[in-house]
Design a protein around this nucleic acid. Structure first.
Lengths: 219, 219
DNA sequence: CAATGTATGTACTAGTTAGTTAGTTATACG
DNA sequence: CGTATAACTAACTAACTAGTACATACATTG
């Protein structure tokens, strides 16, 4: 109890480490906001779940709303960074679409917190997202990759040529987001858990089929 | 200023009318909860926007949470009643799918408040919906209609026979719900308003194509 | 090793918010 | 016409909640 290792995992005051404190607040805040929404989350509870105090939230973030915006910004930039690693350029167009779709699918499934924050931000009519300087000009790597695949597919005469990349992206997102975001009410009404692991492959294939059949149809 | 007509539209105390007061509270509450979520909505503000007082909310509904549940129940039963009017039994299967899809599309577009309440309820992990006696056993007319269409389509050899009605319903809902529920963040990121009237027909056709191409594909 | 600013904790406050208490007024009914 | 009861109101309260004032410890640097 007397001495501490510099990186003691989860108990002691962990000396002074601004970056660490800031990061811990942000991580806890992300969970809390994703769980309860902006109005439902409590600053005191966020503080209680960190190893520091409420005072530090105001010291580092300036207020509840700015903390929420920081959490949203971090969630978006994290997701974008992941998307940037997409590499489907070397594949045949159809296979590239399948991979990209599967990637989005896996992605949304493994980041339910992000999906929840997006839902919450939509309830707020994207007020914070629009005002955020960080998020305003954030490119979408997934859309860029998709655009290039569509160009190649059209050039090869494999895809119809009246499709818009944003529409295709929308279609993929709609399916993957709905599966996670509306899981609870859907399950309550239809007694079907869209995230049941037993049905995972089925849905993963389904969205791929759906998009490809659309892209290869007559037009 | 002295006398009042019995049904003066929006100003006077409107005498005593229990049903009217109850309905007005519920209508205002639905708007407020859909707008700000459960935690974000304020009982005082709901009361202020009615012609009655906060006390009446407690008199008729018993509390904030029970008022929220009542609003949710009314929204769901209203939507179900509308869906019950679906009549596509006499149409050829493909045309029936197109009509049902368009109907869901129109429906979601014209009831953004309902979509918002569903999003909010999902943030709460459908806690209230699951506990509601009214909503627990509520059938889904749209799903029933869809099931019958699929049976007919399969019998006629027009649709593949490995599709599940709930999956098809999910696909339609995903598209239509996403378009309304994620409108704001999608627009902020892609500068595209999915509810722009100029693009309405395009999307309405698109979801129909999508579903039909899936249903008529090889399997 | 002094001093200066960064990082942190404690205790508080002003304003808000769900819910209640203690009544009053209108209406239906005998 | 009077009285029981349903419908209604105003004012209050206890608990909560975002935000702050103030005090202090630590670490870096000259």
């Amino acid at each position: 109890m007397a001495t501490q290792t510099p990186d003691s995992p989860a108990a002691a005051p962990a000396a002074r480490d601004a970056e660490r404190t800031r990061a811990e607040i942000l991580a806890v805040a992300t969970r809390e906001f994703a769980d309860k929404g902006f109005a439902g989350a409590r600053v005191d509870e966020i503080a209680a779940k960190t190893r520091t105090t409420k005072r530090m939230i105001y010291y580092y973030f300036g207020g509840k709303e700015r903390l929420y915006v920081s959490a949203l910004e971090q969630a978006y930039t994290g997701i974008r960074a992941l998307e940037q690693q997409v590499d489907v350029e070397h594949l045949d167009p159809a296979e590239a679409i399948r991979q990209l779709t599967a990637l989005t699918f896996d992605h949304h499934e493994s980041h339910p917190e992000f999906i929840r924050l997006v839902s919450i931000e939509n309830i707020h009519r994207a007020r914070h997202l629009v005002r955020s300087e960080i998020l305003a000009g954030l490119a979408n790597p997934a859309l860029d990759a998709l655009t290039r695949i569509l160009v190649r597919g059209r050039a090869a005469g494999r895809f119809r040529d009246d499709v818009d990349p944003i529409d295709v992206h929308m279609m993929i997102s709609a399916f993957c987001v709905f599966r996670t975001a509306n899981r609870y009410t859907f399950n309550a009404i239809f007694q079907r858990d869209m995230l049941d692991p037993a049905r995972r492959d089925h849905y993963r294939t389904m969205i791929g089929d759906l998009v490809l059949e659309y892209l290869t149809a007559a037009g």
